[in-house]
Structures are given as structure tokens and as C-alpha cells.
Write a protein that binds this DNA or RNA. Structure first.
Length: 265
DNA sequence: ATGGCTGGTAGAACCAGA
């Protein structure tokens, strides 16, 4: 259909059940056509579907597990051919993908955080994070369909993606090895970083603030961990992109905020 | 002052997040 638009949101919600009320508020205020969630922390049988049904998000695919991780796509529009990759090869629920009627694929991913120590020899989780990215790169370099890749990447690649480049160089999420590994993934499909397409470096842009700050907004020690990457042919159709920073200040917030991109079709 | 908190699950002097 000519001149129609498609609005897609992505949010690491840190438990969809604990935050069902602010998810509803976000959907009512922003009204995306599709919402991708990460860290749903719920098994599929217990996914809180009622609110999404009430608001018209009647199409959904969920890939959850007990306690941790978990991803979901909630949609007002039909979604098809759902599938999940296990890029860590350990059974964790960190990806779900779908085909949209407009002709492109939507891939929703929760890349591992990687633990505390940025050394695979001392910290297996860090090695698993790098291996996850390498497997994604193998997948990405053979991609043929136009694709939108969204989610919590758990890496802040640019200096202006963190509150202090110098102080975070040895902190997992901003180490040179992670940035290089993520760079290979980005190069493997010429992925367009929509965040930086619309808010170019060196402007400050964060999507996550620690719960531990006494005043997250005053200290503003944020990181840009969440991303939306588009195939070049899809990126050309992106007309707006927002990071919903005020959501960090809502009652009982997630430590991440939602990203929203609007496309013309 | 980058863990100062948070959620899930158990019922913990826990685990994981990033």
C-alpha cells in the first residue's frame, strides 16, 4: 500500500510481568505497529497476553525460558515464519525472528552481557558473548532478504555511546575486542546503524542507565547498548528514530529504554 | 561511588544483569 508507514519498537523490559503496566503505557502513548521485547523472563505458557490482546497486538511469537533471558514479538500486523537461532549453542532463549507482510524480515536478539571480566580465559561468559557474535556474523554474511535487526546488543561501540570512554575501556560492553567483533558483524551485511543515522556522532546517545545510581538522570552515566540495524534498502525507508529516554523515569522502570523507528512502505 | 539496585525463585549469607 502506498504512503503507509510502519512503526517498530524494541525494548529490553527486564521482566514483562513485573512491568506490564509501563508496557501498556508505552503502547498507548507511542502506538507502534510492532513491539520487540528482550529479557521477558517468563516461560511461554505464562506470557501475559491479555494486555496485548486488549490493545490489538493479537499476533505474537514468544521464545521464553525460566528465570532469565527470553524474547518476544508483539504485533498488530500478521507475522509469519517465526524461527529462533541459538547463536550461543547452549539452549538459551535469546532470539526470535519473523517475516512481515511488507516484505522484510524482523530479527529480535538479546546478545549475552558477557560477565564481569573481559578475558575469555578467565571468564567463559565473555568467550560465549564473542562466539555468539561470530555465529551471528556467519549468519549475517549469507543474508539475502532485507532485514531489520533489533535488540539489546550489550555493546556500546562508539566513544559517544558511553558516559566515559576512558573509564569504560576495560568494562565489558565497551572493550576494544567487543567493538571490533561487533564491527565485523556490522560489515558483514553493510548494516545501517539507525540510531547514528538519525542522531549522528559525536552527540551523546544512551539507551541504558544502571539501577544503582542514586539519581540516574543527574549522574547520566549511560551506555547505548540497544540498537536497530537495517539492511541498506530498508534503511532508505526509515523516516524517524527515537530513543524514549523519559521511560527510564517511569514508576518501577526497566534499566533500558525503548527505541522506535518509523518506515515508509 | 560501575555497583550503590532489581527481578525471579526460593524460602539464600542466592543468582544474574552490565
Amino acid at each position: 500500500m502506498a504512503n503507509s508507514t510502519l512503526k517498530i519498537a524494541s525494548w529490553n523490559i527486564n521482566s514483562v510481568r513485573a512491568r506490564i503496566d509501563i508496557v501498556e503505557r508505552f503502547l498507548r502513548e507511542e502506538a507502534p505497529d510492532i513491539l520487540c521485547l528482550q529479557e521477558t523472563k517468563v516461560v511461554n505458557e505464562s506470557f501475559p497476553a491479555d494486555m496485548f490482546d486488549r490493545l490489538g497486538y493479537t499476533h505474537r511469537i514468544v521464545n521464553g525460558q525460566r528465570m532469565h533471558h527470553g524474547v518476544a514479538i508483539l504485533s498488530k500486523l500478521p507475522i509469519h515464519e517465526d524461527h529462533s537461532h541459538d547463536w550461543q549453542d547452549n539452549g538459551e532463549a535469546r532470539h526470535i525472528g519473523a517475516m512481515l507482510d511488507c516484505g522484510f524480515r524482523l530479527e529480535n536478539v538479546y546478545i549475552p552481557a558477557g560477565g564481569d571480566i573481559p578475558d575469555p580465559a578467565l571468564n567463559p561468559k565473555f568467550g560465549q558473548k564473542l562466539a555468539f557474535l561470530d555465529r551471528m556474523t556467519r549468519w549475517s554474511e549469507t543474508l539475502k532478504q532485507p532485514t531489520l535487526l533489533v535488540g539489546d546488543f550489550n555493546i556500546a561501540p562508539l566513544e559517544c555511546d558511553v558516559w566515559s570512554h576512558k573509564q569504560l575501556l576495560d568494562v565489558v560492553s565497551h572493550t576494544p575486542i567487543e567493538v571490533e567483533t561487533l564491527g565485523r558483524l556490522q560489515a558483514s551485511h553493510d548494516w545501517v546503524d539507525l540510531g547514528r543515522r538519525f542522531i549522528p556522532a559525536p552527540e551523546r546517545l544512551y539507551t541504558w542507565w544502571s539501577y544503582r545510581a542514586a539519581d540516574w538522570a543527574a549522574s547520566d552515566r549511560g551506555r547505548r547498548l540497544d540498537h536497530m540495524w537495517a539492511s541498506p534498502e530498508i534503511a532508505r525507508n526509515a523516516i524517524s528514530h527515537k530513543v524514549h529516554e523519559p521511560c527510564r523515569g517511569w514508576l518501577r522502570p526497566s534499566d533500558h529504554v525503548p527505541l522506535v523507528t518509523e518506515f515508509t512502505l
